[in-house]
Design a protein around this nucleic acid. Structure first.
Length: 844
RNA sequence: GCCGAAGUGGCGGAAUAGGCAGACGCGCACGACUCAAAAUCGUGUUCCCUCCGGGAAUGAGGGUUCGAUUCCCUCCUUCGGCACCA
């Protein structure tokens, strides 16, 4: 046979491609062979790839597939690159839906949860992931939550868990208190159920997350998305300033926090939150009635009403006065609901001339306004801004917030103030130093961040292992008595009250200190506590001498790559960082951060562009699609169709594209094509394309650019079809191409790659134990390069030159072009630029 | 109001370091195969014009540059977060 004619070379088609048959077959074999078992191997570098564990809702949907399948592909890629990869999975198994099912349908949460886990395990297996199932951990197993309880006790012993009475967020639908992070948006709704939360005064357990506020703001060791870092930074809300002690006329100290100590001389009144403890003491008899009425009204209002920024300010005078320490002025004390007890000290100095809120308040109640920062006249603004008549002594029209010079400020007159915060502002810095010398105040930092409220008035969670005794107060359950098991014989009230409270005997116990009668804490822990350390439990899920086996910890931790949704930026991702730092200080773990690299996937929307939800009827069920197209097609669709970090709407026709591609891969590898006699040039070109693709795919895997991995593989497949037509089959280049192609395919479509590798190419099982191929840089290089030639910015011609041609050579070739000559009309070009050997630009 | 991200064909999206805009795929159109359809294969597919050839175009406007999707400024739109935070 000489030149292979396409027509005479119709390959015999193997139409046996049947993912529904081959996928389960390989899944069973891999599992039987323990192919993905991850065990410590000091001879290889480790890679801990973690994806957020699913809640046991009972059904795996695209919200699970989308982070997991591409993460699996990347974990497989890492494994082929010589890493010993740990890619575990488990279940976040405590939580309210289980309890709601119990209330509604009378199924015990434990039964509901574990039945769901069974189904989810089955679904997860159909995904074809390399999860090491022997490391599976379930947070509702006593062998797991024993250690959740143990961690609580360790935090308690290190002073990081405490109990306090305060006004807390309460979800009336979920019937439990919530952490501040779990109250979402300006409507202040419950993170789980969307019900607006209310405030309640309750005594609850907290973790001292604020102790780590500053450290949590430091992301130096983290390769995390900028977005997450910004969200966490804003959430913590650090502001720098000073704390200053004012005094009441009776001499009681009033501590305030201010970011503008440079405006202290302009404080013309003070405002307390209505709940401030000093209010009763300073209120004069004549004002008592009005103050009480105002307090009552503020208490009745919801937080949403009260915190609405555009609401007109209201307040009442207490009759009491304070002394401004910097100038001895006697200034009135008001109460107003725009001052919140929950931020700072619940009391402020009001500087109406330089704060919008204070200005509005002063205008409304006709309180004095004293200017203490005067803008410096500039050529652009000859008259100081904010003034009604532009002149000295004129009335301010609005608060002036900007830079200027201090006036009416005693020793600081003439000091410059810029618009920076804290010590970066010379005026603020000078005043802080002075306050400290005078003993009137000190430099201070305030945070928006609050301590983590951990108590939940629910049954289906890890019990808080604390015991209350009339005599000895609160004490932890002795560690040798852990776990405090959830009782199973409980009754459900439709009201949602915790069955632990109602259980007749469970809460009765003995005091670990005096041995007398005592009661258990009946609240359970926030489930975010369980998920704050699950990555540690995966290390040794059945270990019973501690939460994890140190040998495993030392080898695998920290997590190298963490994937999951951004919705947890200020919840789970902040909690788990806090948790790790707290454990570090308790001497339990090492290192400052638990997860070094984080990547967030986007969201797959319904075909209509809306969020997938049962009520909208736009949910796409993975189970049906696996049955129809096979797992490989589904995995590759999810990688190909979107920028992974962004997501987008589901397109049911899109999956035909990847399904077709895999079929074409199958055809190319299974067609019986007789060897041909392709030209050396054809073989060389094929080899070049293979190594160029390999280079690109390798790069894209590292960078989570899954969509271009698939498109590169599609392009190469098209090239390979052309090369086959040109008779390249039978050459060493062809054999190399097929081998490299399947290795590149293996992480994304593990089943078809294995079938073709083992059963059609007859290579040694398993492709998933092969090494990732090396890029041959020489082979990837082009011999000849084509350069566009621009004349005055427009492409007019193309020239082909040897890849190693120098700039002068390229210039000469460009100027020799007939087309270029035509445009030059015999004139000399003004400029000829050869840009990075990618383009020639001629200016005439 | 403040902070952040993003705007590219009918659609999803590509475009090392400022260098050929629209790769790859979906959809659509036409053709081949077929009695027919599906599947498959092939060709075409940003828009406009006088269709040889030329012009315009990456949310809008301006700037830097031989050259801008990419850098700078102003603005618009969408999405996300925070919000009386002293």
């Amino acid at each position: 046979m000489t030149k292979t004619k396409p027509a005479g070379n119709k390959p015999k088609r193997d139409i046996s491609f049947n993912p529904r048959e081959l996928e389960p077959r390989w899944q069973a074999k891999w599992e039987a062979d323990k192919l993905y078992r991850a065990v410590i191997d000091e001879s290889r570098p480790k890679h801990y790839a973690l994806t957020m564990l699913p809640y046991t809702s009972g059904d795996l949907h695209f919200g699970h597939w989308y982070p997991m399948a591409p993460s699996d592909a990347r974990a497989r890629f890492k494994r082929m690159n010589g890493y010993n990869v740990l890619f575990p999975i488990g279940f976040d198994a405590f939580g309210l839906p289980a309890e709601n099912a119990a209330i509604k349908r009378g199924i015990h949460p434990k039964i509901w949860t574990y039945k769901n886990i069974e189904n989810m395990r089955r679904q997860l297996r159909t995904m074809g992931t390399m999860f090491d199932w022997e490391r599976e951990a379930v947070s509702a197993d006593p062998e797991y939550y024993k250690w959740t309880e143990w961690f609580f006790i360790q935090l308690y012993k290190h002073g990081l868990a405490y109990r306090k009475m305060s006004a807390v967020d309460f979800c009336p639908n979920c019937n439990t208190t919530l952490a501040r992070e779990q109250v979402i948006g300006e409507n202040r709704v419950c993170e789980r159920c969307g019900t607006p939360v209310i405030k309640k005064d309750l005594e609850q357990w907290f973790f001292k997350t604020t102790k780590y506020a500053d450290e949590l703001l430091n992301f130096d060791e983290l390769d995390w998305p900028e977005r997450v870092k910004v969200l966490q930074t804003n959430w913590i809300g650090r502001s720098e300033g000073a704390s200053v002690i004012f005094k009441t006329e009776a001499g009681d100290p009033i501590e305030i926090f201010t970011t503008r100590p440079d405006t202290l001389w302009g404080a013309t009144f003070m405002v307390f939150a209505p709940e401030h403890p000093l209010v009763d003491k300073i209120t004069m008899p004549e004002q008592r009635e009005a103050v009480e009425a105002y307090k009552a009204q503020a208490a009745r209002q919801s937080d949403i009403e009260r915190e609405a920024a555009d609401k007109e300010k209201t307040g009442v005078f207490t009759g009491g006065y304070a002394i401004n320490p910097v100038n001895g002025e006697r200034i009135p004390i008001w109460i107003a609901d725009y001052v919140l007890m929950s931020y700072g000290t619940g009391a402020i100095m009001a500087v109406p001339a330089h704060d919008e809120r204070d200005f509005a308040f002063a205008k409304k109640y006709d309180l004095p306004i004293v200017e203490v920062i005067r803008p410096e006249p500039s050529p652009l603004h000859p008259s100081p801004s904010g003034r009604g008549d532009g002149g000295e002594g004129g009335e301010l029209k609005e608060a002036y917030i900007g830079a200027g010079v201090m006036v009416n400020s005693g020793p600081f007159n003439g000091t410059k103030v810029n618009d920076q915060k804290g010590r970066k502002n010379p005026g603020i810095s000078a005043v802080i130093d002075w306050l400290e010398q005078q003993g009137m105040g000190k430099e201070a930092v305030n945070y928006r961040y609050r301590d983590w409220l951990i108590s939940r008035q629910r049954y289906w969670g890890a019990p808080i292992p604390m015991i209350y005794c009339e005599k000895d107060g609160w004490n932890p359950v002795p560690e040798d008595q852990l776990p405090v098991l959830l009782p199973e014989d409980v009754e459900w009230r439709p009201t949602g009250e915790s069955p632990l409270k109602l259980h007749p005997t469970w809460k009765n116990t003995t005091c670990p200190v005096c041995g007398g009668l005592a009661t258990r804490e009946t609240d359970t822990m926030d489930t975010f506590m369980c998920s704050s350390w699950y990555h540690l439990r995966y290390l040794s899920p059945h270990y019973d001498k501690g939460p994890f086996d140190e040998k495993e910890y030392n080898y695998w931790m920290p997590v190298d790559t963490y994937t999951g949704g951004i919705e947890h930026a200020t919840m789970h991702l902040l909690y788990t960082r806090f948790f790790h730092k707290a454990l570090r200080d308790a001497g339990i773990v090492e290192g400052n951060e638990p997860m070094l690299q984080l990547r967030n996937q986007g969201i797959i929307l319904g075909e209509d562009g809306d969020k997938m939800s049962k009520s909208k009827g736009n949910v796409i069920a993975p189970d049906e699609l696996v049955a129809q197209y096979g797992t490989d097609a589904l995995r590759t669709y999810l990688m190909f169709a979107y920028r992974w970090q962004e997501g987008g709407p589901w397109n049911s026709q899109g999956i035909d594209g990847t399904s077709r591609w895999l079929r074409r891969v199958w055809m190319l590898f299974t067609d019986q094509t007789p060897p041909g006699s392709a030209s050396d040039e054809t073989k060389r070109t094929l080899r070049r394309r293979v190594h160029q693709t390999l280079k690109r795919v390798t790069h894209d895997f590292e960078n989570f650019e899954f969509n271009t991995i698939i498109s590169s593989l599609m392009e190469l497949l098209n090239e390979m079809y052309k090369a086959r037509e040109a008779g390249v089959v039978g050459s060493s280049e062809w054999n190399e191409a097929t081998e490299i192609y399947l290795k590149m395919l293996a992480p994304v479509a593990p089943h078809i790659a294995e079938e073709l590798w083992t059963n059609h190419l007859g290579k040694p099982y398993s492709i998933h134990q092969q090494r990732w191929p090396q890029v041959d840089e020489e082979a990837a290089k082009e011999d000849m390069i084509e350069l566009p030639v621009q004349i005055n910015g427009k492409v007019r011609d193309r020239i082909t030159v040897p890849a190693e041609a120098g700039e002068e050579e390229i210039k000469a070739a460009a100027l020799a072009s007939v087309v270029v000559q035509k445009y030059l009309e015999g004139k000399e070009p003004k400029k000829v630029i050869v840009a990075n050997k990618r383009l020639v630009s001629i200016v005439v």
